[in-house]
Design a protein around this nucleic acid. Structure first.
Lengths: 219, 219
DNA sequence: CGGCATCCGGGAAGATACTG
DNA sequence: CAGTATCTTCCCGGATGCCG
């Protein structure tokens, strides 16, 4: 049953082109978005469901199986006492980040793009990596983000941005707000509500926000 | 009927993430491969079918409609006496080249990749752009390719590669062979058969071939 | 709750035949 | 040559249920 699916060639592009092979591997519905959700570290099945609005459990199971068979995703059992199973990208899977961001940056120019839709915490953090402008990024800045239970941080230094999971002890400011609210503030759609500043200096966030810009619309 | 399809939200990712929106626009089956075939210039319906092994006419029609609605593809009627209809990428559609190549380069590292499958002329030329190594590319070199009726050229100068449709009057060598044969020679799987050299200096092609390299397999 | 199997309805993709 | 019409097959999405 499982073997049939993997060896089933009928639905594959019979094409030596690398792009076609990429679509054989990760071109099915939801596959690249699963990879997106894993881009910032391992996640549990339920975490993935939460970050992927509308995916059904059986489809998510199929995708994870397919991505595992392709060598893009690995499942790992955390040691006791945690003993939970998590999914994570392989090294090679992690190398997909540039074109996954490239897709996002390109599509942000679409006139049909609707920024008011839901946005996962991972999407928010990845969008920072995508839309960062190194040129005006002088000085150092550290921002903490608290999205419900999940903590992230972003650090600007030497005209480079690094982001990741976890709190930053040295944050200039910690923002606690839903991802869409933070996105709206960073990209200038709506000012950050005062209550979103959990601790620290709001002005640091405002400087941070000037370092990101959405591309112009196409057409 | 057509409007229903475009406004039908049921199959869309309800996600503000740019990557998700990209997949709304060009994530359907065959869509990115249609874009690939248009990357080197306008094509007719039949040309696209020929370059896309296995696509059926109705699906190709649907994709072209969808890509046109998304603003990625434009249909144009050539002036008389030609009067044929062609499809071409918009400027924005053309900007997809980096991540389409990125997908290909990434997937070329897959252990499951099978280079012996069919390869279209456009795929062949795009793979050159993808796998070019600037560092060893000293000197100048111009190669012509004749794939059946279609002519292409590649030019190396100042450690940069340019490729496009049409013959090059100043080619050092002109290769006339099927795209897979040329690919096998460029990437070192099989030597170029002598009869593939239509005119010019075979050794020029051999030097050219050293400028391209497939990435190592992952895992 | 996490993960996976199963069934079902709708719809997209594939194959083929057909038309201007 | 450039699509359209039709039929079949299969994937996707939703619901349910099982089991640890």
């Amino acid at each position: 049953m499982k073997l049939e699916k993997i060896t089933n060639k009928s639905r594959r592009y019979e094409d030596a082109c690398g792009t076609a092979h990429a679509l054989d591997l990760i071109g099915e519905r939801w596959a690249m978005l699963v990879m997106r959700e894993l881009m910032l570290g391992p996640r549990r099945f339920g975490d993935l469901r939460a970050g992927l609005p509308g995916v059904s459990a059986n489809v998510l199971t199929q995708r994870l199986e397919g991505l595992e068979a392709a060598g893009v995703v690995r499942r790992r059992k955390l040691p006791p006492p945690a003993s939970v199973q998590v999914y994570e990208l392989t090294d090679w899977g992690l190398e997909a980040e540039p074109f996954i961001k490239g897709l996002g940056k390109w599509a942000a120019r679409s006139p049909l793009h609707d920024p008011s839709l839901p946005l996962s915490a991972v999407s928010m953090m990845l969008s920072l990596r995508t839309m960062f402008r190194p040129d005006p990024a002088i000085g150092s800045l550290t921002i903490g983000f608290q999205f419900g239970e999940e903590a992230f941080h972003a650090r600007v230094r030497d005209q480079a941005l690094t982001t990741g999971r976890g709190e930053a002890g040295d944050a200039d400011v910690v923002i606690a707000a839903p991802p869409p609210t933070v996105a709206a503030a960073v990209y200038g759609f709506a000012p950050l509500p005062p209550e979103a500043v959990a601790t620290g200096d709001r002005e640091a966030f405002d400087r941070f926000a000037t370092l990101f810009e959405l591309p112009d619309k196409a057409g």
